[in-house]
Design a protein around this nucleic acid. Structure first.
Length: 260
DNA sequence: CGTATCCTGACC
DNA sequence: GGTCAGGATACG
């Protein structure tokens, strides 16, 4: 489920349940998810207090009182389950944070593609482009980072070093809001159209965040205008939405109101 | 640049 | 049985 709005919701949930709490035992329940966490690493987390939880793009950074950081990425299907240690463990719990006060936070991920690691400090956090929401990200700046990208714009929007937080759904959605073809060469877009693209992506993310706030679990896709709507009428012009594949991922768009 | 790979589950 | 899945990365 996780793109920026979903990860933001997860981070807020984590913040309210984890900040100021003490980790008692960290349990890895799937080898792939805990690949970077061997037994000594897990053991070293016992007794640490979580001092803060931050989001960068789709990355979650759980800061600890010894300056280390528990780094979590949900990839395709991760989410948190918050409960108490008395509750039965949910299905597909891949990593479990048992808290000293009896609380329990589990990383639930049916596909087990999530990744968890320990960073020596916040300085070791992955380097990403500016967050899509970052006001410092201007159309002119975006134009600079696209200058040498001749390929279609849509796959470029998924490149976290260009702008962080946007994934496959909101890339399609943002392009629809902006009226730009997913096949438009990235470096063919001028400042004016890039301003529209930024606004479109931000609008898509805002609608996503709104949905996250309304429904704790997503699933209600009413805020999506093109994603998953192949063959359905475009909400602006009634033309049938199309699905194509770019860089191995589905792209949805309206062939009439999204032009190069 | 596109493609394969990591994983598992849902759906046709 | 095949295809697809809201991610990222290693490769040709």
């Amino acid at each position: 489920m996780p793109e920026q709005p979903e990860v933001e919701r997860a981070v807020r949930e984590l913040r309210s349940h984890l900040v100021g709490r003490v980790l008692d035992r960290v349990e890895v329940r799937h080898p792939a998810v805990g690949r970077a966490l061997d037994a000594p690493a897990c053991a070293s987390l016992t007794g640490r207090t979580v001092t803060g939880v931050e989001r960068r793009g789709k990355h979650q950074l759980l800061r600890l009182d010894d300056d280390r950081v528990l780094h979590v990425h949900f990839r395709m299907a991760g989410d948190w389950d918050v409960g108490s240690s008395d509750d039965p463990l949910p299905a597909h719990a891949r990593l479990v944070l048992h808290l000293a006060d009896g609380g329990r936070v589990a990383l639930v991920d049916p596909r087990a593609l999530s990744a968890v690691s320990i960073l020596p400090s916040i300085a070791a956090a992955p380097e990403l482009g500016p967050d899509a929401d970052d006001p410092a990200l201007t159309p002119a700046l975006l134009r600079l980072s696209l200058a040498r990208r001749r390929g279609p714009i849509k796959p470029v929007l998924l490149d976290q070093s260009v702008l962080a937080g946007v994934g496959n759904i909101y890339a399609s959605e943002g392009l629809w809001h902006a009226g730009i073809s997913p096949r438009a060469p990235a470096n063919s877009l001028g400042v004016r159209r890039l301003a529209g693209l930024l606004a479109g992506v931000r609008e898509a993310l805002r609608l996503g965040a709104e949905t996250q706030a309304r429904y704790a679990e997503s699933g209600a896709a009413a805020h999506l205008s093109v994603y998953g709507r192949e063959g359905d009428p475009c909400r602006r012009c009634d033309t049938a939405i199309r699905r194509i594949v770019q860089a191995g991922r589905s792209t949805y768009y309206c062939p009439r109101c999204q032009r190069r």
